[in-house]
């Protein structure tokens, strides 16, 4: 099944986000070898060069590292994982807040609503 990609943003960014989420949610465990560029490109139905770019970027920010002959692996740096998880959380909160502000809610009201919300 091809990955779901938005039409209006660069593809490599969306591939990065998807793989990053897969790492944080444990689809790929720390130290796991990630599939090859070609395999991932086929899975996502995207151009291999674009997938290559996404993986290179993930390497550059430290979530993946490559070993010259044996492939690419998920980082085992726990600090790095924690930071990434927090930065994804911040992105989610910011986009949520933006949506709520458009509806005309202030921060205090939003916090009250969250507190009052029943857990399901």
């Amino acid at each position: 099944m091809a990955w779901n990609l938005d039409a209006d943003r660069p593809i490599y960014l969306q591939l990065m986000e998807k793989i990053r989420t897969d790492i944080i949610s444990g689809v790929y465990q720390p130290g796991d070898k990630v599939p090859t560029v070609r395999e991932l490109a086929a899975e996502a139905s995207v151009n291999p060069n674009t997938m290559q770019k996404a993986l290179t970027e993930l390497e550059r920010i430290g979530l993946l590292y490559s070993q010259r002959t044996s492939g690419r692996f998920v980082t085992e740096d726990e600090e790095m994982m924690k930071d990434t998880r927090e930065s994804i959380a911040m992105e989610q909160i910011q986009s949520f807040l933006k949506g709520m502000k458009q509806l005309g809610f202030e921060k205090e009201e939003i916090l009250d609503m969250i507190r009052d919300m029943k857990e399901d």
Partner: peptide, 15 residues
């Protein structure tokens, strides 16, 4: 390049 179009124009090739 496709990525250049997407990041500069904010739209897909189809659009």
């Amino acid at each position: 390049s496709v990525d250049e179009i997407r990041s500069q124009e904010g739209k897909s090739i189809d659009q």
